[in-house]
Amino acid sequence: MATTSIAKGQVDLIDCIDWSSVECLNEKNGHTFTNALKQGYRDDESLFLESDTDEELLIYLSFTQVVKLHTIVIMGPSDEGPKTVKLFGNRESMGFSNVSDFPPSDVISLSIENLEGKPVPLKYVKFQNVRSLTIFIGDNQESTEATKVSKIALYGSTVETTNMKELKKINPEEQ
């Protein structure tokens, strides 16, 4: 499927996330960010991240190394799935109160298609040197009280890559 394919050379950045730093505000008990972010959990649609007191969600995550962010996939139900999503690169200690204080690195508006798995390309130039990422979900498709997110996947590439696996692949016979 062409619509769900990720641009060549971009990899899933799940292995670069520093899990101990991940913080999600306004998440509901039992429906935490783990359900949307972690391998295995995020592919199960019955497990989702849900907002608690209102529809907003704020997810902060940092990477173990500097990355370039290219594409994001956000999946959720068609009614309670997120709609407006603001992304902030390298902003520490953000709260709901200062979401509008800074210009976001990118704002995306998710369609139903996107919620079913269609990747959203980001302003690649704005995410060339990302150490941490703040994802703010402002509202959902039908403006209900709770927002549900079943999957968040980030695609991009790592900077200063020294992938030892690739070095080993050089075949001595070919030299």
């Binding site: 505000l25 608690d52 007191t53 209102d54 907003e56 709260g95 709901f96």
Partner: peptide, 8 residues
Amino acid sequence: GKKLKKNS
């Protein structure tokens, strides 16, 4: 109180 809860 809600605000506190929202900010965990």
